[in-house]
Simulated assay, not measured.
Amino acid sequence: MSEICYQIEPNLTVEEFKEVLIKSTLGERRPIDDENILLKMLAGAQLIYTARHNQTLVGVARSISDGAYCTYLSDLAVDEEFQHRGIGKELIRLSKLAFPTANLILLSAPKAVDYYPKIGMTRHEHAFMLKNTDDLI
């Protein structure tokens, strides 16, 4: 098997991004049918690391950071055919190294919740999410 090539790709295409989301199952929780939103997701990221096998995108890590205190890893997707090979872990490592003083934070997909502690990440019990302002009381 050929080597996996990791690189920063700020100009990743919507088509490739969408395809790897679907192949990773992360597409189940992302707006893959709305290319305008996917385009905004890519444009708003400060860091997009990719993993490629023979030029084909097999993994992506998309992050937003203040560069000093916190980096939010908003998407980590690895094609199911390439999982269990350390690709996700390497994308996380590279994302952390890009902003070394910042804490790397993510919200786990339900299927991946047991993965992150296995690679050395600390579970945080005090995370909250708000999807709609109407939910505020």
Rank of each mutant, 00 (worst) to 15 (best):
Y115I: 05
S2E: 11
D33Q: 15
N36K: 14
P100F: 06
E16T: 01
P110C: 08
I48L: 01
L12S: 03
D114N: 14
V78H: 06
L12T: 01
T13V: 08
D134R: 07
S95T: 15
T13G: 07
K18A: 09
L94E: 14
K111V: 09
E15T: 07
I92A: 10
D33I: 05
L130T: 07
V58K: 02
Q83V: 06
L39F: 04
D75P: 06
T50I: 14
F128G: 04
A77Q: 03
I87R: 02
Q46C: 02
H126V: 02
L26W: 09
M121W: 14
C70L: 12
R62W: 02
L136C: 09
I64Q: 08
Q7M: 13
D134W: 06
M129G: 02
L107M: 12
E81H: 12
E9Q: 13
D33C: 11
V113R: 15
S65E: 06
L97R: 10
L136T: 03
K18E: 11
T50Q: 01
S95M: 11
G88F: 05
I48W: 01
K18S: 13
Q83Y: 08
N132P: 00
I119D: 05
L47I: 11
V14G: 07
M129P: 00
P10R: 12
L107Q: 10
L107N: 09
V58I: 15
I32T: 15
A98M: 09
A43T: 09
Y49A: 00
P117C: 09
P10N: 12
L91S: 10
F99C: 08
C70V: 10
I119P: 03
D33M: 12
C5D: 04
